[in-house]
Simulated scan of single mutants.
Amino acid sequence: MNRVLLTAQIIERKALRYTPAGLPALDLVLKHESDVVEAQQPRKVAMDIKAVAIGSIAEQLTRFEIGVPFGLAGFLGAPRNGRGVLLHITELNDTV
């Protein structure tokens, strides 16, 4: 299974573009911060992650304010250059 649930905020948003199939696409950088427990020990997690949204979700994200947390779901894939990880956003929840 490849499913990610995350609360994040947009820290960088590129201009809306269109795929060769004509679908809207939006490239983003998201920031996530949380406290988790690992091996019965508290741990602070902070990361920036590259993300992409396709279709109506891309259009919705153009209206989200930078720096405001929201919930999302998606899956992890490889970017076009094959290096690192790219979060593909498939669901939004604008309330945290």
Rank of each mutant, 00 (worst) to 15 (best):
N93Y: 09
T62R: 06
F70E: 00
L16Q: 11
V36D: 07
L28Q: 00
G22N: 09
V4G: 08
R13W: 00
L72G: 02
E12L: 06
A46Q: 14
E65R: 10
R43S: 11
T62I: 06
K14A: 15
A53K: 04
K44R: 15
A21M: 11
V96Q: 09
T62Y: 03
I54T: 07
E33K: 10
L16T: 10
R80G: 13
S56H: 13
L6R: 12
Y18W: 11
L16K: 12
E59Q: 15
Q60S: 14
E91Y: 11
N2F: 05
K50H: 12
E38P: 03
L87H: 04
N81P: 06
I11D: 02
M1E: 12
H32D: 01
G71P: 02
L86V: 13
V52R: 10
E91C: 06
V85H: 10
V36A: 12
E38M: 09
G82Q: 07
G67F: 01
V36G: 01
A58N: 09
T62A: 05
L86C: 11
G84Y: 09
L28W: 01
T95I: 13
L30F: 01
M1T: 13
R13H: 03
E12M: 03
Y18H: 13
T7G: 05
M1Y: 11
Q41W: 04
L16W: 09
K14H: 15
R17C: 03
I54K: 02
A51P: 04
Q9K: 15
E33H: 07
V96E: 12
Q60V: 07
G84W: 08
A39K: 13
P24D: 07
T90A: 11
K14L: 12
R17M: 10
P20Q: 06
A78N: 12
V29K: 00
N2G: 08
V52A: 13
G55R: 12
D27A: 12
I54S: 00
L23K: 14
L16Y: 09
G71V: 05
G22K: 09
L87W: 06
K31D: 00
L26P: 03
L26Q: 04
L61V: 01
I66E: 06
S34N: 08
K50Q: 12
A15Q: 14
V68G: 00
K31E: 13
P69F: 06
G82E: 05
V68H: 02
K44S: 13
V29Q: 01
T19W: 09
Q40T: 09
V52T: 15
P79E: 05
I11Q: 02
Q9I: 02
R80C: 02
T19V: 10
M47W: 06
V37E: 14
L87D: 04
L5G: 11
A53N: 08
E91F: 08
V52G: 06
N93D: 14
P24H: 07
S56I: 06
D48T: 12
I57F: 05
E59V: 14
H32N: 09
A58F: 07
I66M: 09
E38W: 05
V85D: 05
Y18C: 05
G71I: 04
T90N: 10
A58W: 03
I11K: 00
V45L: 15
I54P: 02
A39V: 04
L86R: 14
T95Q: 14
A51R: 02
V4L: 15
A53M: 08
N93C: 10
H32A: 03
D35R: 14
I49K: 04
V36Y: 10
F75L: 08
